[in-house]
Amino acid sequence: MMLHSKLSSNPAKNYTVATLVSVGKHPKSGRPRRSDQDSKALELALNMDNRSVHVIHAGDSSDPLRQSVLREYLGMGLERIDVTRQNANSDAVPALVERLKMLQADVVLTGSRAESGEGSGMVPYLIAQALGWPMVPAAVEVTAAGDGEFEILQALPRGQRRLLKVRAPFVASVDSAAAESRQTAWASGQRGQLQEMAIGSNPDEVMSQVTVEPARKRPKRIASAKKAKTAADRFKAATAKSASKGGAILVKESAEEKAQVIYDLLVSQGVINKKK
């Protein structure tokens, strides 16, 4: 592949990172804002070494409020954003794929889920599918490892992390657990360029058939109220998390036995090395 040869000739240098940004929506006020995950994806891209970053937005950017949001991304230190203007209610994926093909990007970073519109979280998958690239979800760190390979630190539930090695080109979506995005500087946001690109709009058939309303947090299903003497007990019963499974309760055992169990646990968890 052409991309491949470009990378291997100059390991870990001068690769292109494309970051896709969208106009988010503030959860309280509902106003347009810099999308949380998208700006984290951009932060991640800006922190990679020896890269050139292209920031792409596809959407209806005629509204000055939405433009001011794009300027907030510019204020993170960008010179320009490629804006492929789309009509309202159009499917951004084909336009983005076309733009990415033109750009010959090595790495594409996106947020996990848009804050407005469909918000299905499908965009990175659809793009990866269209390009025939692998897609890595929930990235929190991406570093070039040389020879066209990248190390991706992936966020797993409960704060666990997994290190993956992926060969470019690939698409990665960035998890909310990634580093906070940098502050936007108003003046540099005003100076940056919103460079319009002419790529045709594809009407989104799904969106044309549905009505969108703001999502509301569903009340959490609580366990059925148990019989209890006091309201506090009932509350506890309804809200307490299920006890953790596994483990053992040692009460009557001797101190040596208790110590042995703790020792074994520490060894099994890799906290200490087993004495030989």
Binding site: M76, G77, R182, Q183, A185, W186, A187, S188
Partner: peptide, 12 residues
């Protein structure tokens, strides 16, 4: 703040 975007603490 306006040019460098380096307001400390919870400023941003």
């Amino acid at each position: 703040t306006l040019e460098q975007g380096s307001t400390p603490g919870k400023g941003s």
